[in-house]
């Protein structure tokens, strides 16, 4: 990395600066398998060009995965795309797109702890890649909604058939979406927020 002269480090455009009154932030995680549309969804609603942050974890025994076949220590690097939405002059929302595979779960113990909730993005061509992460969210008590991103060549199932296949609790919202469209991504986020709100009203969040 070349840090000769920090003036050269590009920062946010002036119009992207948060106001000084910005006091605190909240986060929502968009989780799904490879290529399901996480980055597209972040980009379609973000007020800034999506950015990428990385985290690396080195630990014996993590990454039990064919791509990381070494026996002792494995380093898992994960890139997370994220975007930002200013809610008020005091409050900022960040959206993180993160892969759902098991070897990335270390993120949930640290970085994504405290997220208000999650959107599980599924692709009906590979529904099963989202099974593990949904189970993990259930075990950890992280509230989530399911959004079905429809690709042209993907099998179409009635939403209720998907609900049954995913064994979703009856109160968990599931909906079709097209993450390339801002209105559609926004509706998914609104559905998550309404769900969180209903949980708050019923005192069901623990």
């Amino acid at each position: 990395m070349d840090f000769n002269g920090s003036d050269t480090i590009p920062g946010p455009r002036t119009e992207d600066h948060l106001p000084h009154t910005a006091q605190s932030a909240v986060k929502i995680v968009i989780v799904g398998g490879f290529g399901v549309g996480k980055t597209t969804m972040v980009g379609s609603v973000s007020e800034i060009r999506p950015l990428t942050t990385e985290e690396t974890m080195t630990q014996a025994g993590i990454g039990v995965d064919d791509n990381y076949g070494s026996e002792s220590k494995t380093a898992t690097t994960v890139a997370m795309d994220f975007g930002r939405i200013s809610i008020t002059d005091k409050l900022v929302l960040y959206l993180f797109g993160t892969p759902g595979q098991e070897r990335f779960w270390f993120l949930w113990n640290g970085l994504f702890e405290g997220a208000l909730g999650a959107v599980v993005l599924v692709d009906t061509r590979r529904l099963e890649v989202s099974f593990d992460v949904m189970g993990r969210l259930e075990e950890r008590g992280v509230p989530f909604v399911v959004a079905v991103n429809s690709f042209p060549d993907a099998p179409r199932y009635p939403i209720e058939e998907l609900r049954t296949a995913l064994d979703l609790a009856p109160e968990i919202p599931i909906m079709d979406c097209d993450v390339r469209r801002r209105a559609s991504s926004k509706e998914v986020l609104m559905t998550l927020m309404r769900f969180l709100h209903s949980l708050a009203l019923s005192g069901a969040l623990t």
């Binding site: 909240v26 809610i87 405290g114 927020m193 709100h197 969040l205």
Partner: peptide, 17 residues
């Protein structure tokens, strides 16, 4: 940051909405 609470803050959720 503000993190998810065991007793959720409805006014926060409403502000985000």
């Amino acid at each position: 940051p503000i993190v998810r609470q065991s007793v959720p803050d409805r006014s926060l959720l409403e502000a985000v909405m």
